[in-house]
Amino acid sequence: MKAEIKIENCPEPYAIIHTPEVNEQVQRVLSYMRQDTHTLIGQKDDRQYVLSIHEILFAQVKEEKTYVYTMDQMYRVKHRLYEIKQMVGHDFVQISKSSIVRIDACESVEIDFGGALVLHIKNGLKTYVSRHYLKNFKKQIGL
């Protein structure tokens, strides 16, 4: 099977398969492509990067702009937080009105002064879990 990639200005990656018949090889490719493998376009330093949702550890809205964090970078994305939450599904949990985190990216939690819960993420970030989302967060991570 031949393959070709064209870099274009489009909202998300898509594929077109030209084939005289749908055989086993085409079925395997279609099956793989239909899996829940979403990507996001992240912007950093006037460049755009294709990010797999599996790379994303944390997503946050600051000053009406949405940012996603990977293990070592932060990217601005055009999606709204609820759209990202729909893409990533049950792998993420909401921790505040403006933040979601990948459950397996949570490194540790600690109780801060005043009873607030501080969440340490594997990439070195730390953030707070809002009281409103605390019960669901604890349930999701097994506390």
Rank of each mutant, 00 (worst) to 15 (best):
S108I: 02
I84G: 05
L117V: 15
K65Y: 13
K65F: 09
G114D: 05
K97I: 04
R80S: 06
M74S: 09
E107S: 08
L81Y: 10
Q73T: 03
K65P: 06
V88P: 06
H120D: 07
M87I: 12
I103F: 07
L117N: 02
Q60I: 13
K62H: 14
K78A: 08
M74E: 15
K97R: 06
T66F: 11
F92H: 01
Q94M: 03
Y75C: 02
K62W: 13
D112G: 14
K85S: 10
K62G: 07
D104R: 00
V93M: 04
M74H: 04
A116C: 05
F92S: 00
G114E: 08
V88R: 03
A116I: 09
G124C: 06
R80V: 12
A116W: 10
T66P: 08
F113K: 09
Y69E: 01
Y67L: 10
G124K: 03
E107G: 05
T66H: 11
E83P: 06
F113Y: 13
Y82F: 14
V68Q: 01
S98Q: 11
C106G: 07
Q73A: 04
H79N: 12
S108V: 02
K65S: 12
E83N: 06
A105G: 10
G89R: 04
D104T: 03
K122V: 15
Q94S: 01
L81F: 09
K85M: 13
L119A: 02
Y75H: 03
G124D: 00
I121C: 05
Q86M: 11
K85F: 10
G115Y: 11
Q73M: 07
N123S: 05
Y75W: 07
Q86N: 13
A116E: 08
E63H: 15
Y67N: 08
V118C: 09
I111P: 01
F92Y: 11
V109R: 03
E107H: 08
K78I: 04
Q94N: 01
E64N: 15
L117C: 11
F113T: 10
S99I: 00
V77W: 05
E64S: 15
Y75K: 00
Y82S: 04
E110I: 07
L119I: 07
S98M: 06
K65I: 15
E110K: 11
E63F: 14
T66L: 15
K97D: 03
I121W: 04
R80W: 09
E83F: 08
I121A: 07
K97E: 06
K97T: 03
H120G: 02
K126D: 01
K85E: 14
V93Q: 01
K78P: 00
V88T: 09
H90F: 10
V68R: 01
V101C: 01
I103K: 06
C106F: 12
K85R: 09
G114N: 15
